[in-house]
Design a protein around this nucleic acid. Sequence first.
DNA 1: ATGAAAGCGCTAACAG
DNA 2: CTGTTAGCGCTTTCAT
Lengths: 358, 358
Amino acid sequence: VLKTFAEICGGWASEDGAGGSQATGHRERGVAVTIHQVAQAAKVSVSTVSRALNAPDQVSPETRRVVREVAERLGYQPNRAARGLISGRTGNLGLVVPDIANPFFPPMVKAAQTRAQIADYAVFLCDTDEDPHTEIRALRTMAKQVDGVVVCSPRLNDEQTAEVVGLTKVVFLNRRVPGVPAVLMDNADGMRQAVDHLAALGHRRCAYLDGPRTSWSNQERRNAAVRFGAQAGLEVVTLGPFAPRYEAGLHAADPVIAAEVTAVLAYNDLLALGVLTRLAARGVRVPDQVSVVGFDDIAMAGMAAPPLTTVAVPSAAAGRAAVEALLEMLAGDHTEPRVVELPTQLMVRASTSPPPAT
Amino acid sequence: VLKTFAEICGGWASEDGAGGSQATGHRERGVAVTIHQVAQAAKVSVSTVSRALNAPDQVSPETRRVVREVAERLGYQPNRAARGLISGRTGNLGLVVPDIANPFFPPMVKAAQTRAQIADYAVFLCDTDEDPHTEIRALRTMAKQVDGVVVCSPRLNDEQTAEVVGLTKVVFLNRRVPGVPAVLMDNADGMRQAVDHLAALGHRRCAYLDGPRTSWSNQERRNAAVRFGAQAGLEVVTLGPFAPRYEAGLHAADPVIAAEVTAVLAYNDLLALGVLTRLAARGVRVPDQVSVVGFDDIAMAGMAAPPLTTVAVPSAAAGRAAVEALLEMLAGDHTEPRVVELPTQLMVRASTSPPPAT
DNA sequence: ATGAAAGCGCTAACAG
DNA sequence: CTGTTAGCGCTTTCAT
């Protein structure tokens, strides 16, 4: 019941829980039980133990039964590091993310980890804090202890990308690089849906809130907005660029008002949410006076007031798909480097409506 | 440019970026460079290479220079698994979380991972999806390939806890168990601040929205609300229990209205946010008619309308502290199992005000 | 100061 | 079907 630690820094935030209840069969743990102990206890050789566990049909049913029973009783858990050393297969995957605190990533990470676990892979997580340098360093270190890596929204340049691809099996998530297997989201189609929605409501002029210049997704989204806008008779003026954050949205709202548009397409939800807040503060009613559309459909989008119309992006499915693509590569049935593009979908909620009658 | 994958399930959500630009010194990667290759290239034995890298003062300055240069040129990265096999130290830590998609956890995970990385540890992440069974299984598997584990908001029962503690070094986060080192947040004091705030505003009767029955934090928070409420002349009626989620908050708002209170203390922010939404839908103005206080201070709390008054919990600092506690245990300077309790702090925003004049 | 040799725990030939 | 023999890549005595 001590009480200490003065340094409180960066983020704050809580949650937790207490025990469920499941009986655990009694195990005799003698600190570290190795395959040798099992072999000895079962009165067979270590290789038999290994086979009984990994290649069940290479040992007699009886031996197998005994070995497995003993292994179970002793609580034997094979040492994956040792196994990996000889087999070349570590049973580990790497997962690299620019910023896990960005609400866009957690569902992706969760799905990826869960999928990996099902295939009996453990996953190393690395948050690069948006730094390409940290990213490449992490990848180099990881390479040796994983069978492959999923890199989400890579910030690597071409040279670094080439190096990484030579280091280990890699699947990119949210970035298309020739020759590199990847899982992508159909940003263009999502933006088309959003633009069509606005045009159908009768909007004729809207703003696109530009995201980070270096963002691959942003380029796709902006281009699509302009292209499909022209096609649907919706003029799109670009404002920005803005950081993909709530605070930047607060900032972006004023230019939006000045731009005399009846609708705004934001690069992402965080930005859109900021716009919503600031618009309300300035007395501009959403959606009556201005319609707002986000992108991503992060959890908070549906909790905003008004609930945000946005383009849902299948980030959980993408995380899962990326791991699956990696697993396929590892299985060796690799035809060509696979590129998967997942569909996106407009979620119409309450932040969009016909423009005010002039 | 294929296009496939029909199955879109669970969560949806986007973000990404494209390359920065940093020159990478040219490396001659011969697929996998081992300590042997370095030894050969440097014309010394493997043990000398090992020493030159790990125990610099055991080799002559000249040899050291040469070896390091060669290692650098070849891009040698020691195989941590092999190292761990002999040294018993894996250089890996485990991080177990009930649900990374819960916005409470990402800052914690990020801070923990970052801190571990600084100490040159890699981290295995496991999301247990709130399932004690998955949790114990993950812990058993991890135990062998890590030097220690941080378990966030453990859902383990006593027996399982005992087993885990025997498996590897463990630090709990958000749960106090006798004999187990832990990092805690001062829930009681945070609740005291919230209650005092309400009492100071003139509230005389408020509701506490109960969280999950099994949650250790919830028990602490509820008890504190009642105890400090009595002390401050604020009657606290408990409503619930509710799941710690936005949807549950939507549901909780109606009983709140029926309870004829002038304020509500929610178990956590998600719940409070739901209450905010539903109250607005029913035409109840916050804070004019009812004040709302959350707990945790997740990112969305500040983005709500009105911005939520809530108790900030230092989750990032906690993640960092947990890793540090683990690191200390590993270093062996373990005096007694350490328990650290971090302070919490009320963030007064716009969802609280004096009660309506009756 | 340096090299040779012995394993860490495990799997994969290779014999019986 | 099962045991024996080699190592995987690395650190660490133990000699030299």
